[in-house]
């Protein structure tokens, strides 16, 4: 018992450490990418059109610490980033962290809603297809899933807008309302982006659920359970599904990359003021500190969710939870 508790703690610790190292490497990458990118942030900050004097440029440069050696810039930047200080936006001098902190929960909410939508649709459909392998139902469901993974999110989103907003007028086409101001409106505006984002994910979850169900159904122990006289329903619900849950959770985790990528497009098309919107705007305006802050926040979000998935995964699978002693 004691050994398994320390084992579990050790596992959590190791995963945490890996995540932190990953984050550090990504932070370094983000910093260096900014550094090799063309364009002078100082000129941008002062406004290149206003033709600033060399003295003004120099004083701004030292104010931003850009006259320091790269390595010390890097460590200063890293140290500040650790305290969530990403500097100020070049556009208006507001602290970047304020933007990041206000937009991060919105992206999280969107992604979370999409995962829920996708899981609620994808898992049952995948199970339904696997249980009747080769039937008409299976053929239809797998075809729909193949279509689902082929339609890009922005086309899905556009079609949803065409249908639900323009044709039926049921839901708003885009925008964001704060939940404290009008909760109903908030969720009405969340519906379409979450659906658009969740649809493709639902399709891949359905495909993966189906194939892992089929894989487990073919294992020896399923035959052994039937030989014990267990009802088919119990075999499926008690044993097959719980075994299949492990790869399904993995695929949901692996799909997070696509999901975060999808938020870029979905946020842009639905004017959802999340991290991606922030990032796309900052990239177009070459607002370096804002880009760095947003990138780092997205990476941290992604790594954090991945960590959660991995911990959930090892919770589900005793073979990982308890290494053979």
């Amino acid at each position: 018992m004691n050994a398994s508790v320390t084992g579990a703690l050790l596992l959590v610790g190791r995963k945490l450490l890996t995540a932190l190292i990953q984050l550090l490497v990504i932070a370094t990458l983000i910093f260096s990418v900014m550094y090799i990118m063309p364009g002078d942030p100082v000129l941008l900050l002062l406004g290149a059109d206003s033709n600033p004097s060399p003295e003004a440029v120099a004083s701004m440069r030292s104010q931003l610490g850009l006259d320091q050696p790269v390595v010390s810039q890097y460590f200063v930047w890293l140290w500040r980033a650790l305290r969530l200080d990403f500097g100020v936006s070049l556009a208006n001098g507001y602290p970047v962290s304020r933007y990041v902190l206000s937009n991060l929960p919105r992206t999280l909410e969107l992604a979370f809603a999409a995962i829920i939508v996708a899981t609620l649709i994808g898992v049952p459909l995948g199970i339904a297809a696997a249980l009747k392998r080769g039937s008409l139902r299976d053929t239809i469901l797998t075809s729909v899933a193949t279509i689902g993974i082929s339609v890009p999110v922005y086309i899905m989103g556009t079609m949803l807008v065409l249908f639900f907003s323009l044709k039926l007028g049921w839901l708003p086409a885009s925008g964001y309302t704060d939940i404290s101001r009008n909760a109903l409106e908030h969720f009405r505006k969340l519906a379409l982006p979450a659906l658009a984002l969740g649809f493709g994910l639902a399709a891949s979850i359905a495909r993966m659920t189906r194939s892992s169900m089929l894989e487990i159904l073919g294992r020896d122990f399923v035959r052994a359970l039937r030989a014990k006289g267990m009802s088919e329903r119990r075999v499926i619900w008690q044993h097959v599904l719980r075994n299949a849950a492990i790869p399904i959770v993995t695929i949901i985790g692996l799909q997070l990359g696509n999901l975060m990528g999808g938020t870029v497009l979905v946020e842009a098309m639905f004017n959802w003021p999340g991290l991606s919107t922030l990032l796309v705007g900052a990239v177009s305006a070459r607002n370096y500190p804002l880009v760095q802050g947003a990138m780092l926040a997205i990476a941290a979000l992604f790594i954090g969710i991945n960590l959660l998935v991995e911990l959930l995964y090892s919770l589900l699978d005793p073979r990982i939870r308890r290494k053979r002693t």
Partner: peptide
């Protein structure tokens, strides 16, 4: 009742 060839694979791994 039945006993199978590969005993480890014939038991559900997660129980």
């Amino acid at each position: 009742a039945m006993i199978f060839q590969d005993p480890i694979a014939s038991l559900d791994p997660i129980f």
